[in-house]
Simulated scan of single mutants.
Amino acid sequence: MNKCHLVYLACTAAVVGAGLGAAPASAGHMTHVVHAGQSIQKAVDAAAPGDRVLIAPGTYRESVTVTTPGLTLRGMGRGVVIQPAAAKTAAKTAAKTTGKTAAGSTGGATATCAAAGNGICVVGKKNRRLEDVTLASLTVTGFTRSGVYAVDTDRLTVRKVTAVKNGVWGIAQEASVRGVFRGNTARDNGDAGLFLANSITTEQGATDTGGTLVERNRLEGNRIGVTVRRLRNLTVAENHVTGNCAGVFVVGDENKPKAGAVTVAANRIVRNNKSCPKTARLDALQGSGVVMTGTEDTLVTQNVIRDNAGKSPLSGGIVLFKSFVGTTSERNRISGNELSGNLPADLVDQETAKANTFEANSCQVSRPAGLC
């Protein structure tokens, strides 16, 4: 070991050993190091735009809210686990947060996100999106709502994050643009492993995401692997989607502009045969590979979709599902996919509109016949 390396280790040890510390980083930015037993939120609050918060392995019982642009929140591997605080601690934190909101020092969305049961909250403002935040290399588990929840962000990156056994979504984002979700694992969450939407609460037309990318994630054991709701200009590519009740949902409705211009490409979507009961908004789910409803101009291509089998109205390999509100799916192209063993069929077209294209797919059974 050379002398320079020894000096570096000594400096790092001094920062960590001193408690919640900060070390110089490039371009004048600081690295704030959090050790087991310390507060991630305190380090985040102390960070300036462009700083990095580095989390040492350990279990941290807290929710974390990020409102600083350019911040990187990174764990030293999946041994960094963020879980809900104990009930008494959570109650105290909620009381403090409510007080800050009443005083006007913290915005409503910021204050309520963690209190609502989310793990990591990345929160911008409606008229000023939070830019260039990165979350990486950590595990978020056991929260009643979402492991990661982001709203009003621009160029959010979430990579190598494991979101496990959260009550609703593993990783969720709304009202945001140009996001990148790469190399994450979302497993055994109550609803979607990855959930992307224009707005969760407001009825409005689909919004343009500016090219958001969902790539090389593993989505397993959720109700739905990936849900894309009321969005346009987004790519879902090279993901491994298995063991969910349904693989990929691209969802629109009667609002204008219509959802669409989405690319679903080169994914492996196999054996999504978990059974999920009917809800107020959706039929029971089992055995769905890719489902599109109320969408336009979407390309589904070069996917491997196998052995998705069920008796739900949405079951099948690739399903064009008749919208509950009567909105047709138009000008969608299903091309060059490899499908086999999907039941009731590899390709299912329930649409009355004839403006969708099925071409060059390798498959055995379709409904109606003749699509393969």
Rank of each mutant, 00 (worst) to 15 (best):
A353K: 11
F321K: 03
A309Y: 04
V264H: 07
V270E: 13
L320H: 03
R281V: 10
L320P: 00
V348N: 07
T298D: 04
A284L: 08
L347T: 12
L282G: 08
A353V: 06
G310I: 06
G252S: 03
A353C: 10
L299I: 05
F249C: 01
K278P: 01
G310E: 05
G287P: 02
K274Y: 12
V270M: 10
F321W: 07
V304P: 00
N267Y: 11
E351M: 13
L343Q: 14
D349L: 07
L347P: 09
N308A: 07
L314K: 04
K278G: 12
G326I: 06
T328K: 13
D307M: 01
V248N: 04
R271L: 11
S335T: 15
A353M: 08
G289K: 02
A266G: 12
V264Q: 07
E254R: 08
E330P: 00
N356I: 12
S340N: 14
R281Q: 14
R271I: 09
K322Q: 14
S340M: 12
D283R: 09
G294I: 04
A265Q: 13
I305A: 02
T293G: 03
P313I: 08
T293C: 06
G326C: 11
N342M: 07
S323C: 09
K278S: 15
S315Q: 07
M292Q: 10
T242E: 03
L282K: 08
D253Q: 04
T293Y: 00
K354M: 10
G341L: 09
K256M: 10
V262S: 05
L282A: 12
A261K: 14
C245A: 15
E338C: 00
S340D: 14
A353W: 05
K256D: 13
S323G: 13
E351Q: 15
A261I: 00
L282V: 08
R306P: 00
D253R: 01
A237H: 01
N272T: 12
T298C: 05
R268K: 15
V304L: 11
K278I: 04
L234Q: 02
N244C: 02
Q302M: 07
N337K: 06
T235C: 05
A345H: 06
A345Y: 06
V264K: 03
S315D: 06
T263R: 13
V262E: 07
V325A: 12
S312G: 10
Q350H: 14
I269C: 10
A280C: 02
I318S: 02
A265Y: 06
D283T: 07
G310Y: 02
R281L: 13
A261N: 15
K278N: 12
N244P: 05
G310A: 09
P257A: 08
T328S: 15
K278A: 15
Q302I: 00
K322T: 14
